[in-house]
Design a protein around this nucleic acid. Structure first.
Lengths: 168, 168
DNA sequence: GCCAGACGATTAACATGTTAAGTGATTGCG
DNA sequence: CGCAATCACTTAACATGTTAATCGTCTGGC
């Protein structure tokens, strides 16, 4: 089966082995986790992001859109679309802030809370099983390292692509 | 600043604090990393996924689409679209496998390799800076934990959502 | 009060993620 | 051979990620 037609392309650049790149490792780990949660969410017509939003609202009460975006770690445009959909489904409610008509206050409805009550047990059970298998202590270590990485990266300046510094 | 209008919604479900969920931690860490790479890729009209594909091809030579999907950790539909685009840009080439016309062999072109040579130095510099700041040893530990998590999750059965077993 | 600039949120446009369905080629079995 | 099942890949449809542009609203200087 080892036909001679398959010549190996020369890798001239000494780059890190592909699978060892940090973004790939993080992506794979995350996908491995989400793979277990998606079926349960899907059974209730919820995407991962919609679930994040409902949980964030249940935990924090009424908050502004921008703050919700920060909590649920979503970009504005995604959040706008999802909120429109969740509002149509009566899972959340919105109201303008009287003192500043630019601002939008979002809150979860009773229906939304009820949905969380239905989904949460399964979700928690899955998370619990993961914790048990991986080890609570090790999981905490992983969380700590990820947080440390985050802080480390925030402190790292956003490297410009420009080779020359335009400042005189 | 603590206006009385903001009533705190009762969190009836004792769920894990939102920001402590593993998917969120992984997502944030990954975004923190990618935030540094995206500008450089964007300067060369490359998305993160396109870059993954080019690197995978440069490292492995000619491979089939399915194998490329596995290497670059992309789903088939995404890969199909991206390959169509990269082929139009002459960064990759494709050929049907004569012995099995279902299969498609993909390879990187000279133009693709040249692009990698241009982008790689910046990319490696950023990665090097991250490694230096975070610590090479700690980074290796993180990789190890992520890999262990992956294996642990693969061994975990995909919990069915169904409460009842529909078999006979 | 007026207006330029900043701000919060949305919309637009394009790329990818995700699942399901479709298409053509191959395989295995009668 | 004939054909149903399978396979490799692609398309389709919808949701989100990402960046830029837009649209009201607000703020501050005048």
């Amino acid at each position: 089966m080892t036909s001679a037609t398959r010549s190996r392309a020369p890798a001239k650049i000494p780059m890190r082995d592909f699978s060892q790149s940090l973004p790939m490792s993080l992506l794979r780990a995350r996908e491995g986790v989400m793979r277990h949660f998606r079926p349960s969410l899907r059974a209730h017509d919820l995407t991962e992001q919609q679930w994040r939003i409902l949980r964030a609202l249940a935990a924090s009460g009424e908050i502004e859109v921008t703050e919700l975006a920060r909590l649920a770690f979503l970009l504005g445009p995604s959040l706008s679309r999802i909120l429109r959909d969740l509002e149509e489904r009566k899972l959340i409610a919105r109201q303008l802030l009287k003192t500043d008509l630019r601002r939008n206050i979002v809150s979860i409805t009773a229906k939304g809370l009820k949905l969380i009550e239905v989904v949460a047990p399964t979700s928690e059970a899955i998370y619990g099983e993961m914790t048990r298998r991986f080890g609570a202590r090790k999981l905490a270590e992983l969380h700590a390292m990820l947080h440390e990485l985050e802080l480390c990266l925030q402190a790292m300046p956003a490297s410009d692509t420009d080779d020359a510094d335009p400042a005189d």
